[in-house]
Structures are given as C-alpha cells and as structure tokens.
Simulated assay, not measured.
Amino acid sequence: MTTFPNDFLDNFATSLLGSKPSYENPRHRDILNAFTVVQDLEQRLLTVLTAPPQPDMGGAEHWEACTDLLIERLVAGRELSLLLSTPCLSAAEEAAADAVWETFGIDTDEQCCQEPAEPAACLLDACSNVFAELGDPHAVASADLVDALRHLPGTAGNHWRYSDLTQARLAQLLAPHGMQTRDITLPDGRRRKSYSREALLIAIGVCTSC
C-alpha cells in the first residue's frame, strides 16, 4: 500500500471505493525522497544565510558552515537530476535489451568482470578499509564513515585533509565515483543517510553480480 501522502486516508479510500490497493514504485519513492532532501537543504541554507551569526561562532566558521551546506545542496541536486534522467526499465525490458546485446555477440557478464581501467582512488581504499573494520556491513552511515576517516593522515582529495572532512565534503569527493547517500536502515536499527557497500564495490571496480 502506498504510504504517501497519507496512509490512513489511502486505506480508507481504497476500502470505500472497493478498488485494488496501490503499491509504491521504489524508484518513484527515491525521486520523492531526493526532492525532499533538496528542499530541506535549501531551507537550511536560507536560514543560515539570513540568520545573524551566533556569538560563539566567528565569521570564518559561519561562512564555512554556509559553504558546506551549499556543497551538500549541489550534491543532492545532482543526485535528483540523475534519478530524473535515468530510464526505469522493467524486467522484461532489461531482458529484451540483453537479448539485443547477445545478437552482436557481446557477453555482458564477461564485460562486467573485467579489471577496472584505472586503479581505485586512495579515498575509496580508505572507505573500503573502514567497511572491513566494521565487519563489512551492507551500509555505513555518512557520519560514522566521516568520523573514521578523520583519523587518517594525508589528503582525502581536492585540498581537504582527512582530518578536515565533513559529510558534505565527503559527498562531493565520492559523487564522481557514483557513490551517493541513501536513507538506509543500518544493522543497529538506525535509519541514516548512508553509503552502501555495494556502491563502494562498484566504484572500486569489483563485480557485484557474479
């Protein structure tokens, strides 16, 4: 049963009209969630920009917070654009597409398992080590990943050292590798903005379908 916009009213309408219950398309839910995140970040950014600086926060810290929020908003907007522009194929359509490739003698599984053209970035290796230290869970919260990476020496990417990482900066560094946060329920029961292990493996170049 769909949970948007109102579960109770939807159930009532279905019973009243005697119609079949409607079910969510997970991809549509992802788009809706991404749009909600963009709206929330824009509101937070507007609030920070228009609010007077806090007494315990210097001007540099205030603008750094604004910059981090702006970067996070740009990353969220990019994620929403990708979701809106990516075609959604049904299982039958995907099978038909695979059949077309087979007519040209292309083995999609063989291509998938080839070694990556370039070595994985150091940041991806560092993220992989964090996952391994935590027992390779299916996902790690963005905040937890940042906390673990901050203890590392050296530069994470661009001009940021690992010790200076924030969630927004990590999102900017991982976005070019196709890694985006999702609302994921973690093994400890928390539901947080998290990075999935599958997305990390794909970014490194490891085949996850074999």
Rank of each mutant, 00 (worst) to 15 (best):
D147H: 07
L152D: 01
T181L: 08
Q167D: 15
A156K: 03
H177M: 11
M179K: 02
R169G: 07
A175P: 05
T185N: 04
I184A: 02
L145R: 00
A156V: 06
D144Q: 02
L173H: 06
D136E: 11
L165A: 12
E133S: 10
L149W: 04
A175T: 15
D183H: 10
A143W: 03
S163T: 07
R192D: 10
R169P: 08
Q180A: 13
D144V: 03
W160F: 14
L186E: 08
A132S: 13
G189Y: 10
L145F: 04
S163I: 09
L152Q: 05
A171E: 15
R150A: 02
A175N: 09
L186G: 03
G135H: 13
V130D: 06
R161G: 14
L170V: 12
R161E: 14
A141M: 01
D144T: 05
A171W: 06
A139D: 04
Q167H: 09
P187Y: 08
P137T: 09
T181Q: 11
A171K: 14
A148E: 09
T155A: 04
R192G: 00
T155S: 02
H177N: 13
A148S: 10
A139L: 05
R161I: 05
G135C: 11
L134A: 13
R182K: 14
S142C: 02
Q180C: 06
P176K: 12
G154T: 04
G154C: 02
P137R: 08
T181H: 13
P137V: 11
Q180Y: 15
A139K: 03
Q172D: 15
A132W: 09
T155L: 06
G178E: 11
E133W: 08
A139P: 02
A132V: 11
L134S: 06
T181A: 12
T166K: 07
L145V: 02
I184Q: 05
D164R: 13
G135E: 13
L165H: 10
Q172T: 12
P176F: 14
P153H: 03
P153N: 02
Q172S: 15
L186H: 07
T181W: 14
R182T: 09
D164C: 12
L145H: 01
T185L: 06
G157V: 11
R182F: 14
R161H: 14
H177V: 07
D147M: 07
T155Y: 07
I184V: 15
A168S: 15
L149D: 01
V130N: 08
V146M: 00
G157M: 10
H151N: 01
I184W: 07
A175E: 15
P176W: 14
L170F: 12
M179C: 10
G154L: 02
L145M: 15
A156P: 01
A148I: 01
W160V: 08
D147V: 01
